[in-house]
């Protein structure tokens, strides 16, 4: 069974452990209904495509608990070079690529990579060793615990259903409040 974006995130929530979760774009509108702790960081306002790089810096600063960045396919396409940086800079970082083939928050226009870009292949070719691909809810449920266990870097490519008629998401709270909550939560961690 194909999975919805929300179903993909629900599985993530069950297996994320204590890791920081950085959400981007459409995930920002869904994630607070699933999890809204100080370790959930909605990267908005953002510079589109820079979520994984932000997560890398944070993961380097805090190898424990580590960081999961929930990125879109459009965001990933904006900064593909990051996969190479990620491979070259070992960190406890997990990048989820939520691939719906659309720029969902701008009205559902197809991306340049829709339907033909192999994100797992790109990640492997960049030098990332832990790469996973799940294109059904059942497979993601079965594989999530393993994919999210251990130490990054890892890339997890999830194929989800596109959804039209979406509005631009809003973060659950202002940026400065988010930063304060996150930093307090991480105080004392390595």
């Amino acid at each position: 069974m194909a999975m919805t974006h929300e179903q993909a995130l629900e599985v993530l929530a069950a297996d994320r452990g204590q890791r920081v979760v950085v959400t981007t774009m459409a995930s920002i509108g869904l994630w607070p209904r699933i999890s809204d702790t100080p370790r959930d960081f909605a990267y908005m306002p953002s510079s589109m495509g820079q979520g994984p790089a932000l997560g890398l810096g944070l993961a380097l600063a805090h190898p424990e608990p580590g960081v999961i960045v929930v990125n879109g396919d459009g965001c990933t396409l904006m900064n593909l070079g990051f996969l190479v940086t990620m491979a070259n800079t070992p960190a406890n970082l997990f990048v989820l690529i939520i691939d719906n083939g659309l720029y969902e928050v701008t009205g559902g226009q197809v991306t340049a990579g829709a339907g033909h870009t192999d994100f797992a292949g790109l990640a492997r070719s960049a030098g990332i060793r832990r790469v996973y691909h799940f294109d059904s809810l059942e497979a993601w449920k079965q594989g999530a615990a393993e994919a999210l266990a251990g130490t990054g870097p890892a890339v997890i490519w999830l194929k989800v259903e596109g959804k039209l008629g979406q509005q631009t998401p809003k973060p659950p709270r202002g940026m400065q409040e988010q930063i304060g909550r996150l930093q307090t939560s991480l105080a004392g961690s390595s």
Partner: peptide, 12 residues
């Protein structure tokens, strides 16, 4: 991307 990595480090 370099700026974003630095931003994450500062955040941490």
């Amino acid at each position: 991307e370099a700026i974003a990595i630095a931003a994450g480090l500062i955040l941490g």
